[in-house]
């Protein structure tokens, strides 16, 4: 799956995150977090595994995190990717 167009998911509220995706060659992830020192690596690994589950091969993913839990990060990334990849039909098993 490739990111075809720019898309956004999430909010700037505390305990949430905003995910911006845009077309790119290869995968590039940029994480910005208020808790980067403690959890930056963890956030990145959640993003990476979420992308892998969706078979995303190309896309620039920019995360502005406000201390979101892993489940929120996963859901927001899925949402932004599916919007940006213009997916019409969902394979629900990949979203688990």
């Amino acid at each position: 799956m490739k990111i075809q167009k720019e898309a956004l998911a999430g909010t700037l509220e505390s305990s949430d995150l905003m995910v911006k995706v845009s077309p790119n060659s290869g995968i590039e992830i940029i994480v910005n977090s208020e808790v980067n020192k403690q959890f930056g690596a963890q956030i990145r690994s959640v993003v990476e595994s979420t992308l892998a589950q969706l078979n995303v091969t190309d896309g620039l993913i920019v995360i502005d995190d406000k201390g979101a839990l892993d489940c929120a990060i996963k859901a927001r990334v899925q949402c932004a990717v599916l919007r940006g990849a213009e997916v019409e039909e969902l394979d629900w098993s990949k979203l688990l």
């Binding site: 956004l8 700037l12 509220e13 505390s14 905003m18």
Partner: peptide
């Protein structure tokens, strides 16, 4: 946090 919501709305 009104400004935060305002910015988010503007971005969207």
């Amino acid at each position: 946090n009104i400004n935060l919501g305002l910015l988010e709305y503007t971005i969207k």
